[in-house]
């Protein structure tokens, strides 16, 4: 029994040591690109064999060409900067207003009683539905897009700020109160830092929502921006360009999210390091 299993045990282990050490430690570094290549290859094959119409699903090669063309001509950059500007404007407004109003509601009883019921009411409405109205109010220029971006990013900011301000550790507050610290000191020395993890969840939602807001605003009516470009390309049945713009939007979204996470790691240095979950 034992002499039969001994040589067998070595067999499954044999191919692994030949792999480089980094690959054995993190196989996902090879597997993730591999999945990408396989899916892309299958996709290309399905479209090339004529199984799906080019108008429904363009081949990856055509999307790549459209992306290259859009970047080379400067078209994507020009419209991308417009959308980015609108999203950034909306983000800034939403963050400022969310932090201010969230803090006021949490700290001042009277403000909570006066405005909170209305905010809850508005919050349950789909804010996207306001986009056409906002375009009527603020015109076809950038302002209406900033407004849409601001409104849909505002609520996640408000709700997370409120939750953060209410998550204050009472024990730490007691330490400050026992020293006779006033409300401003308590806010700066305990409540605000304690609220930061919540606020950062709000920021990472808002940074994605503000792009959505700007694009939806452009859908309703615009003369520039990536949302406008999507509508144009769609109308001309230039589906590869639509996909190319979606890729560009994805890249912007990832960059914004990475920026927020980077800031979080710096500002919330005391948080226990979160291990990336590896299957």
């Amino acid at each position: 029994m034992s002499d039969a299993t001994a040589p067998e045990l070595k067999l499954p282990a044999a191919p692994l040591p030949r792999l480089p050490a980094w690959l054995r430690a993190r196989p996902e570094l090879a597997l993730t690109p591999l999945v990408f290549v396989v899916v892309l290859g299958l996709w290309q094959a399905v479209v090339s064999l004529g199984l799906v119409s080019q108008y429904v699903l363009p081949a990856p090669s055509n999307i790549g060409l459209a992306l290259f063309e859009g970047l080379r001509s400067g078209l994507f950059l020009k419209h991308g900067l417009v959308t980015l500007g609108e999203a950034a404007g909306g983000f800034a407004i939403a963050v400022t207003a969310g932090l201010l109003i969230g803090t006021l509601i949490a700290e001042v009883r009277l403000v909570e009683r006066a405005v909170y019921p209305y905010l809850v009411m508005v919050q349950t409405m789909p804010k996207i539905a306001l986009a056409p109205l906002l375009v009527v109010w603020f015109g076809f220029g950038s302002t209406s897009k900033v407004a849409v971006a601001a409104i849909i990013s505002f609520f996640p900011m408000l709700v997370t700020t409120l939750a953060g301000m209410r998550a204050t550790d009472q024990g730490r507050l007691d330490v400050l109160r026992a020293l006779g610290a006033g409300p401003i000191r308590c806010f700066l020395l305990a409540k605000l830092p304690d609220a930061l993890p919540h606020i950062f969840s709000g920021l990472s939602i808002a940074v994605v929502f503000c792009m959505t807001g700007a694009i939806v605003g452009e859908f309703v009516g615009a003369s520039a921006g990536l949302g406008y470009l999507i509508v144009q390309a769609n109308a001309r049945m230039n589906i590869p360009q639509v996909f190319a713009i979606l890729l560009a939007l994805g890249a912007i979204g990832v960059a914004g999210y990475a920026l927020v996470q980077g800031l979080r790691r710096r500002l919330l240095f005391w948080e226990p390091k979160q291990e990336l979950s590896r299957p």
Partner: peptide
Amino acid sequence: GPSREVGVVFQDANLM
């Protein structure tokens, strides 16, 4: 109210 003549150590450390 609180007095500066008093130092308190709570049941939990309550550090920042």
